[in-house]
């Protein structure tokens, strides 16, 4: 089992973590077209590479950002969310 580093609790087995998904910035809902919105909601980029994702350390309910290379299956870095998306 992999080890993941929670920015608050340190290294823990990955079974303690909840994966949310890649962080995406939504288009402006007031101005975007239906197609743009649908693309944002439904299309996920599954191509291997470095992904920026939301993860949560479940026992402590700590949300943070993980950067992960899905090609090499390595967790590059984890840090607390500093703002960005809406």
């Amino acid at each position: 089992m992999k080890i993941m580093t929670c920015p608050i609790n340190g290294e823990r087995p990955i079974s303690e973590f909840y994966y949310w998904g890649a962080i995406k910035t939504p288009p402006n809902p007031d101005t975007c077209s239906d197609e743009e919105w649908s693309d944002y909601v439904f299309n996920k980029n599954g191509a291997p590479g470095v992904k920026k994702e939301f993860w949560c350390h479940s026992p402590s309910n700590t949300w943070f950002v993980a950067e992960r290379d899905t090609l090499t299956d390595t967790i590059l870095t984890t840090y607390l969310y500093q703002g960005g998306a809406k």
Binding site: Y18, W20, F54, C56, S58, N61, W63, Y81, K86
Partner: peptide
């Protein structure tokens, strides 16, 4: 609860 915590983090 978990999801609301995430949203609260993002919305600030």
């Amino acid at each position: 609860y978990r999801e609301l915590s995430r949203l609260n983090m993002i919305w600030g």
